[in-house]
Amino acid sequence: MSVRYVVVCDRAGPHGVCAAQLHTGARSEDEATAAAERAGWEIHGGPDYCPGHSRAPRPAPPPTPIRRGGPQP
């Protein structure tokens, strides 16, 4: 028998839970935690969050262009 750790996102919302998983290939919890942190996951011994749901700062989205007047081509 072999053991491999998979880290799953614990984010839950009104439409269900996040399906993000990180297959680390690690053989210990410490190795899995280190691999997840390198991949941008938020791991603190409590709920684990994928990069999309972590509290890490995210860059602002690009501004939406404003179209003014007249017909558009």
Rank of each mutant, 00 (worst) to 15 (best):
M1K: 10
M1E: 10
S2V: 08
V3S: 13
R4D: 03
R4H: 07
R4A: 06
R4V: 06
Y5I: 14
Y5N: 11
Y5L: 12
V6Y: 06
C9L: 02
D10C: 13
D10E: 12
R11G: 06
R11F: 13
R11M: 12
R11V: 13
R11I: 06
A12Q: 01
A12V: 06
H15T: 15
H15V: 14
H15M: 13
H15I: 12
H15K: 11
H15W: 13
G16R: 00
C18T: 01
C18D: 00
C18N: 00
C18S: 00
A19P: 02
L22S: 07
T24H: 04
G25V: 09
A26M: 01
A26G: 00
A26Y: 01
S28L: 06
E29M: 07
E29V: 10
D30E: 14
A32S: 05
T33A: 11
A34P: 01
A35S: 08
A35D: 07
A35C: 05
A36T: 02
A36E: 03
A36F: 02
A36L: 02
E37C: 08
R38T: 12
G40W: 05
G40K: 10
G40A: 08
W41T: 09
W41E: 06
E42F: 13
E42V: 07
I43K: 12
H44Q: 14
H44F: 14
G45R: 04
G45A: 00
G46W: 13
G46F: 09
G46C: 05
G46Q: 11
P47T: 10
P47E: 12
P47G: 15
Y49T: 09
Y49E: 07
C50E: 11
P51M: 11
G52K: 15
G52H: 15
G52L: 15
G52V: 14
H53F: 12
H53S: 11
S54M: 06
S54F: 02
R55F: 05
A56Y: 12
A56W: 15
A56H: 15
P57R: 02
P59Y: 04
A60C: 03
A60R: 12
A60H: 09
P61S: 03
P61L: 04
P61R: 04
P62V: 02
P63Q: 01
P63V: 01
T64Q: 01
I66M: 08
I66P: 03
R67T: 11
R67C: 05
R68I: 08
G70I: 09
P71K: 10
P71C: 05
Q72S: 11
P73I: 05
